[in-house]
């Protein structure tokens, strides 16, 4: 009905411009052969080739993927257990209210405060136990902490959509607790668990603030590498790296879309 609304269409396209123009500029200059300055000196892929030879970038990429993989695995198990423990047990209403506050904390609390809290927790734990030096382990623990809630929220919404009758039917057929979980509940919530895991993985790869506060000198991730490279100014190598990361995001979104449409 809004066919004759040029302003609406114009604003929509302006929004897209705002979202994509900077990224487009990065992509264009990532294939420009000029080292300094912005004059077009011809197409090249040498900056991409350099990425493959840059040890620091390789290490950061490995760190990013390792942290994302490990933290996602742990957070998916913990988050799913939390969702099951809360939803499949008749807790009193008051207990539910307390649980809800704790689960929603990472969603509501600004991430810089979460990062500061984690720093404080690690310092206190370090004084108590002697471990928890800032590094790979604190980075992974930090990521798990904000991932758990998101996994729980996704799995819970899946659990809420299942009906009681399936459980009752299984019980009528003398299903044991373990059999009920293994053969009925788990297959039914699996799409939710996978969606939660995917969300957690993307959040981890994407995170900067929590990582910035909890990483150690030898556990630099890609966003932290780019941030610290700013001190040396703009460089075509970083354009290439940014473009690769952007394309990776596009790929993840497309896969996620395929994935959710099939469910």
């Amino acid at each position: 009905m809004d066919r004759k609304r040029p302003m609406v269409a114009l604003t929509a396209f302006f929004s897209l411009l705002l979202l994509y123009l900077p990224a487009a500029a990065v992509a264009v200059f990532s294939v420009n052969s000029a080292r300094i300055g912005f004059a077009w000196k011809g197409f090249t892929l040498k900056w991409y080739a350099r990425l493959l030879h840059n040890e620091y970038i390789q290490e950061a990429a490995v760190n990013s993927l390792l942290v994302a993989a490990v933290s996602t695995a742990v957070a998916t198990v913990l988050g799913t257990a939390l969702a099951l423990g809360l939803d499949r047990v008749p807790w009193p209403r008051k207990a539910h209210r307390v649980f809800d506050v704790v689960i929603n904390l990472p969603v509501v609390v600004p991430d810089i405060i979460m990062a500061v809290s984690l720093t404080l927790a690690f310092t206190l734990l370090r004084q108590l136990s002697g471990v928890f030096a800032l590094g790979m382990s604190t980075l992974i623990i930090g990521h798990i902490t904000f991932q758990i809630s998101f996994v729980t929220l996704v799995v819970r919404s899946r659990l809420a959509s299942l009906n009681k009758e399936t459980d009752e039917a299984a019980r009528d057929l003398f299903a044991s607790n373990f059999y009920l979980f293994r053969r009925v509940t788990l297959p039914l919530i699996m799409p939710g668990v996978l969606a939660g895991a995917m969300l957690a993985f993307t959040l981890s790869l994407d995170d900067f603030i929590i990582s910035f506060f909890t990483h150690g000198p030898e556990s630099v991730t890609l966003p932290i590498y780019i941030y610290s490279s700013l001190k040396r100014g703009l460089s075509p190598e970083i354009y290439a790296l940014s473009t690769v990361m952007l394309l990776f995001t596009v790929l993840m979104v497309l896969i996620a879309e395929r994935f959710t449409r099939r469910l």
Binding site: L82, F99, V102, I113, L124
Partner: peptide
């Protein structure tokens, strides 16, 4: 039943409490 629920929900709740809720309050 509640013990079973606690066995499942306990560890993640303790995790969130020690690393997030308590430090937040400690601030």
């Amino acid at each position: 039943l509640r013990l079973a629920g606690l066995a499942l929900a306990g560890p993640p709740l303790v995790w969130l409490a020690t690393l997030l809720a308590l430090p937040c309050a400690a601030l």
